[in-house]
Design a protein around this nucleic acid. Sequence first.
DNA 1: GCGTATTCGTGAATCCATGCACAACTGAAG
DNA 2: CTTCAGTTGTGCATGGATTCACGAATACGC
Lengths: 217, 217
Amino acid sequence: MVPEKTIERLSLYRRILLQVRAEGAAMIFSHQLAAMARVNAAQVRRDIMQLGCVGVPNGGYDAGDLLDSIDEFLYPPTFQKVALVGVGNLGRALLAHFAGRWRRLSVRAAFDKDPAKVGREFSGCPCHAVEALPRVVSELGISIGIIATPAAQAENVAELLCDAGVRGLLNFAPVRLPGPTHVYIENVDLTSALDKVAFFARQCEREALASGAGGTR
Amino acid sequence: MVPEKTIERLSLYRRILLQVRAEGAAMIFSHQLAAMARVNAAQVRRDIMQLGCVGVPNGGYDAGDLLDSIDEFLYPPTFQKVALVGVGNLGRALLAHFAGRWRRLSVRAAFDKDPAKVGREFSGCPCHAVEALPRVVSELGISIGIIATPAAQAENVAELLCDAGVRGLLNFAPVRLPGPTHVYIENVDLTSALDKVAFFARQCEREALASGAGGTR
DNA sequence: GCGTATTCGTGAATCCATGCACAACTGAAG
DNA sequence: CTTCAGTTGTGCATGGATTCACGAATACGC
């Protein structure tokens, strides 16, 4: 119903609006928001329409109202809990990155199979043994899983999480996870991302040389 | 010319093919690759066409040839060097994640403004002061930059890198970077990603409840 | 050699996202 | 009150990516 990209942009608008409000601006125009988010102004207005939020012609949008509408639209009325599996370098970085970033969403449990990590806390989040996953996820009512394990374990972990009742997965392992019905899966492939940048960087290089417009190299 | 998504998938196919070859299979069909990459078989064939690589009807593709073609297509003839800025939690995780993963691509320099980090090595990559960035990037011939700084510094760092001659940027800071011509920019927004999963997880939840088909919660 | 079942390559159709352009509306100035 | 510059909301066109569907080609069994 609501386009995926719109959700991503709303999350971005929210951060921009927080900053805008901190600077004291009460009203904001679509083209201002668009410039800061590096998107088209029409796009911004379309996205805002999805919220049911309206602006006034020649008046713009009320930054506070907009922020509230995004919060209400994007975040749940009840608290939403997240679990992270794989407390390696990436897992710890994600825990630190996500800690305290939301009001009604937080990573409440981490899991790892390394006994040295079990029982410790990482960025305020307790680490359990993987064996305890079904029980802990169930008991805490966790609805989202983040997978930061090596590729080999990813599929297994995904199944564990889904069986335990999770409804969304954010996967950082370099494999594409299958999508069981009624579980939303987002794959973030860091290796592909760098491969892509490397490829198009070379293409830019060639274009720059061909057109004569160019950097230092 | 070549679709962005195709490049991402080729990177994925490559990893799958490495595994397939390790298991001893010589030939592979488009539908097999498609199943493992969770995409459509026609998509796989289209992507492979871009390589100029051909298969034989009813015979499939030669896994080795395919792998070589992808390597040749995706990776540069000359070595490609990468710099990472921001050696925080995320930066260190990325250094560890990317270390030794490619043959003709590697992260050769890291930068941070914390004097305690300057001079040390992280995952085999030396950390320099940010002030040294223009010189080091130039001297080493680095063509790609990874930004893992807080949002506030991201734009500045991006400009530094571009001025130093970088042709591609992979940005993990929670802001959208502007795109100067002839520099390819990829924004990876972790916060948006989790927001998106959280949103659609709730939607899945509702659907599951509505349809009666369901998990444990 | 021949028929059959299977797969590749690709034109056409479909779908989704983005950008353009304009009518409708508002607030301010004269 | 009237005019006018400026903004919102949205129909329409554009474009890119994905899927469908089918002709052409091939391996295999007999």
